[in-house]
Amino acid sequence: MRERKAAAVRERVREFALELPGAYEDFPWNECVIKVNRKIFVFLFLGHLVAGQGDSPPTVTVKLAHPEAHAHALSAPGAVPTGYGLGRAGWVTVPLGEPGAPDAGLLCDWVEESYRTVAPKRLVARLDAERTAPPGA
């Protein structure tokens, strides 16, 4: 059951990320990442690459520049600063499907913050314009 829930949350986060202006999917290391302007803004690992954790759950990794969001993400069950030195730059890895894990809505908020941190200003402006446009405009 937890595995199905984790897979559903991961898919919702993936779909949301791909809806952002200029976003596209790539598969370095045979794992899913979402990029904008050739820069990764979300890692969607299936879990087996998390060092030292064996059969670990799927994870979402995002870059959170705002201290409050960063602290909130790190308070999630099992969340850790991302390895390979990325944690020092604000990247956080959050396991999915565990009791108390963030829901898809919160993860999508974090994905958007990560996107805004990495994306070119013109694409962030396009996202803002899309968000404020009246329906049907």
Rank of each mutant, 00 (worst) to 15 (best):
K39W: 07
L106E: 11
E3M: 00
V42P: 09
A137R: 10
P58T: 06
H66D: 15
A125E: 15
A76I: 05
R12M: 13
T132N: 01
S75G: 06
N37R: 10
A6C: 02
L46I: 05
A17E: 11
V50C: 01
A23V: 07
A51P: 13
G85L: 06
D109L: 07
A101K: 08
A125C: 05
D26A: 15
K35I: 03
S75Q: 04
E3V: 03
A7R: 09
P67G: 07
E15M: 03
S75K: 03
A119K: 04
A89L: 10
K39T: 03
R126T: 13
R14L: 13
E15Y: 02
F41Y: 10
Y24R: 13
A7I: 06
K121Y: 00
V13G: 13
L46S: 10
C32V: 15
E15I: 09
A8S: 14
A71L: 06
D103S: 09
V42W: 04
G87P: 04
G136A: 04
A23P: 10
K121D: 04
G22W: 15
P95D: 07
L64W: 10
V33Y: 11
P102F: 12
A51R: 14
P81R: 12
I40F: 10
V124D: 03
I34W: 02
A51I: 08
R10M: 02
L44S: 13
E19C: 12
H48R: 11
G83H: 01
L49H: 15
D103P: 07
D55V: 06
A89W: 03
P95N: 05
A104S: 14
L127F: 08
L49F: 14
P102G: 09
G105D: 15
L64F: 11
P102K: 14
G87W: 06
P99E: 12
Y84S: 03
V94E: 02
V94C: 09
L46A: 13
F16A: 14
T82F: 10
A137P: 02
E98D: 06
V36E: 08
V9G: 03
A73N: 05
E98I: 05
A7P: 05
S56Q: 00
